[in-house]
Simulated scan of single mutants.
Amino acid sequence: MTEPARRTLLLAAAAAGLGAAGFGGAGCTSDGGGGRGTTASAGMSTRRTPAHSPDSEAPPTAPATPTLPTIPPEPPLPTASPWPLARTEVEPRAKASAVRLLEALGTWPRGQQGPGPARERARARDVPPARAAHLVTRAAPLLTPAPEATVRVIAAQYGGLAGDRASVLVPLRQWRRAADGSVVDGGATVDVRLTRAPSGWQVRDLHPSRPGRPLARPGPLIRRTVTHDRIHLPPAAEADIRAGHLRPAPLRALLTLAESYDIDISVIHTGHPRNVFGTSRLSDHTRMRAFDVWAVNGRTVIDPTTPDTLIDGFMRAAARAGAYRVGGPRLLGRGGEVFFTDRAHRDHLHIAFDSDE
């Protein structure tokens, strides 16, 4: 065989061997995208199975956690704070009986609202059952239905002392929990009537304040008085002024006095005895011509450390502002028709006017 023929035969044999290797045994197929292929044996399909084919079971999905609405916490009620008695009280047990009963009736925790628990609180103050039921009925303004409530006494002064009978006037503030969880701020002034018994002073009756509705168009004297930052009014006294239950003369005097003093008012109109205690004379408070003051410049009238010059100076300033009757813990000068004192006025100042204008 010639050399060219032999070369041709060898090339043909090599080509036949390469063809057999390409189709006979196991081989690798490409995915056509330059990525990793799948391996298949002879006679097996090389079709790919999608990652999430309809024939395959889907991986389990964790249940979604529900998002609960955020509920803001309820604002707390102010804490109860027993009113302190001064060591110079004229009848300390009378005042203690009055204020402690009102604190008990007007303060309750959750689950203790209503007249039944109120009667139990009264009985815990040594009030006999029949009288406890009566006093709870009389204290209705302090027992407005609420899940919980707190009372704080602002002041306590005598409305009158006559033998074995006494009147103690107690302006107080009360905070109640509303149905929506908010806090409602209110209050009253209560005329507490007591009698002296062998066992001590006993509460016989309660006369809470009941101010009228505020005037739709209050005049400038009223607006200036209730917004003055040196005139401090308990809830019932403020309500009295807003309802027009204080005449112009005492309103003008209050504004004049506030130019020189910080004034803490105790009683204006409602919550005060109708008559001068123990008499048949109509009170100037009933005539809407008077206001009572329990502290001046933050110093209480009853406190023995309060300077006499402060209280006496205020009383004289009230007379210069037009008051025709000024009562207090001491008789100023020779007294006369303007200044007076008695046992019931050791703890407050009575400022009264004889004009409706």
Rank of each mutant, 00 (worst) to 15 (best):
T107N: 01
P4Y: 04
S280A: 11
G43W: 06
V90M: 13
S41Q: 01
S260H: 13
E120A: 08
S167G: 10
V296S: 10
G336E: 01
A118D: 03
I263F: 03
V190M: 02
A14T: 06
A352Q: 02
A12I: 15
T88L: 14
R177S: 09
R289D: 06
A139P: 05
P235S: 09
A118H: 03
D342S: 08
V326E: 09
P115H: 01
D164Y: 01
T8M: 02
G187N: 03
Q202G: 08
G35D: 11
A319R: 15
G212D: 10
T305D: 05
P4H: 06
D354A: 10
S97A: 15
H345F: 02
R110L: 03
F314N: 00
G186N: 06
L215A: 12
L11Q: 13
R47H: 02
H348S: 14
I231V: 14
A188C: 08
V190D: 02
T107H: 02
A216M: 11
A352D: 12
S56P: 00
L143G: 10
D354H: 09
R125M: 06
F340D: 06
L194H: 04
R121W: 13
G244T: 06
A80T: 12
A118L: 06
V226M: 09
A319P: 10
G25I: 01
V153Y: 04
P273S: 02
A122I: 03
H134L: 11
P304L: 00
G32Q: 03
F277R: 04
G244H: 13
V192A: 04
P211V: 14
L169S: 03
G328F: 03
A58Y: 08
F277G: 01
R48C: 00
P304V: 02
R204E: 15
A146Q: 00
P129S: 11
A239Y: 03
R6A: 03
T2Y: 11
A21P: 00
R173C: 00
R36N: 09
R217T: 14
G19D: 07
L282S: 04
R100K: 13
M288S: 15
T79M: 05
K95Q: 08
G111H: 05
